[in-house]
Design a protein around this nucleic acid. Structure first.
Length: 321
RNA sequence: AGGGGCGUAGCUCAAUUGGCAGAGCGCUGGUCUCCAAAACCAGAGGUUGCGAGUUCGAUUCCCGCCGCCCCUGCCA
């Protein structure tokens, strides 16, 4: 079994990213083989600032390592460090029906929002297919919004296999149960595009300000409140242990205490929850060359596998003897 | 490719005949609040797409380029 997952370095990771996806990816790293890459080629479709892209890519690497991604267990690399992916992308693109891409909702959505659609955005699912097929991945953990792209990948791999003979492993999507709802500072789903995020490695002073500004309802302190329906409690539950959660729930039901208290408690558990990761991050930032070494090692391991698969595909379609 | 329209703050848009670049929303800080929200007060934010030209002076006028939208064609 080989698990593969990529993450775009478009912004710093927030709680929604972590509890919704990253944590699960990291938990899967002890599968037989795990490949994790930072999708800088995909990020290039939106991040059009060289320094920013460089910095984002480095930050993503450091953050993932700090959050527990272990290069001993998983192959961790930067997408563009394995140029084979763009070569495979072309092989796949030659057989890709336009209609398949036009049907992808991610593309339709962006276009509907008036964003300029360039060819890179349009062919994004093909690059994603190359990402997956290049490493013979069996399992791709994704949120449900990405399931369609996995289907595209299977379609492309299937038709290539049909035309040129068995070449690619057909991957399966592993749909990540969104076990926990992660609301943002306005109570809506936490998302960069809603500008309501709390970042995992936010400076603590800033985190405090953001938490204190989380929107609440206007009920007075005295009222008893139902904890499950409150987004402050939902956030608290993500990071509190069982006894803390019970205690907080009891406080809600009893009434007589206010949201200000909950926010302070939330800041407390959030600080504790990510404290070790923060320390690890500090240590890594102090030694950037160590991070680069990890990425270089990951790239060379990834390229070994990628070279095999690309050669197989090139032979199948007649590009090499 | 030809014709037309557009390009100004993060967003939507103003700016008289060519005369100190503005408003709303958003953002930041403050008052208030258990914390917020609302309300009120204050503040930050700009190479006016890029480049050249005319002019004492260009967001405004002329020329070139780039990008986006519409119409009409052309090619495969």
């Amino acid at each position: 079994m080989r698990v593969l997952s990529g993450i775009q370095p478009t912004a710093r990771f927030h709680w929604g990213n972590y509890f919704g996806a990253i944590r699960q990816y990291i938990d899967l790293q002890t599968e037989d083989e795990a490949y994790y890459f930072i999708a800088d080629l995909h990020a290039l479709t939106t991040v059009r600032d060289a320094d920013k892209l460089r910095q984002n890519t480095f930050d993503a690497a450091v953050d993932l390592l700090a959050l527990g991604l272990n290069p001993e267990h998983a192959v961790m690399f930067v997408q563009s460090h394995v140029p084979e992916v763009t070569q495979l992308c072309w092989l796949l693109m030659t057989g890709t029906p336009m209609g398949l891409l036009e049907r992808c909702t991610a593309f339709k959505d962006k276009k509907a929002h008036g964003l300029t659609a360039d060819a890179g955005l349009f062919t994004y699912p093909v690059l994603m297919a190359a990402d997956i097929l290049l490493y013979d991945a069996d399992v791709v953990p994704v949120g449900k919004d990405q399931v369609q792209h996995i289907e595209v990948c299977r379609d492309l791999a299937g038709s290539f296999n049909h035309e040129f003979g068995e070449t690619f492993v057909l991957p399966k999507a592993k749909i990540l149960e969104s076990t926990a709802k992660v609301p943002g500072t306005d109570g809506e789903k936490m998302s960069k595009s809603y500008n309501n995020t709390l970042e995992v490695f936010e400076p603590l002073g800033q985190l405090k300000k953001k938490i204190m500004r989380i929107t609440t309802d206007s009920r007075p302190m005295e009222d008893a409140k139902e904890p499950e329906s409150d987004h402050l409690f939902q956030l608290y539950s993500l990071m509190a242990d069982d006894s803390q959660r019970e205690e907080m729930a009891a406080m809600y039901r009893r009434g007589g205490f206010g949201y200000g208290e909950v926010k302070k408690a939330l800041l407390g558990v959030a600080t504790d929850y990510f404290a070790e990761a923060r320390e690890r991050r500090e240590a890594l930032v102090a030694k950037p060359e160590q991070v680069q070494d990890i990425l270089a090692d990951g790239a060379s391991r990834a390229r070994k596998k990628a070279g095999e698969v690309l050669a197989r595909a090139e032979t199948a379609c007649g590009l090499r003897g």
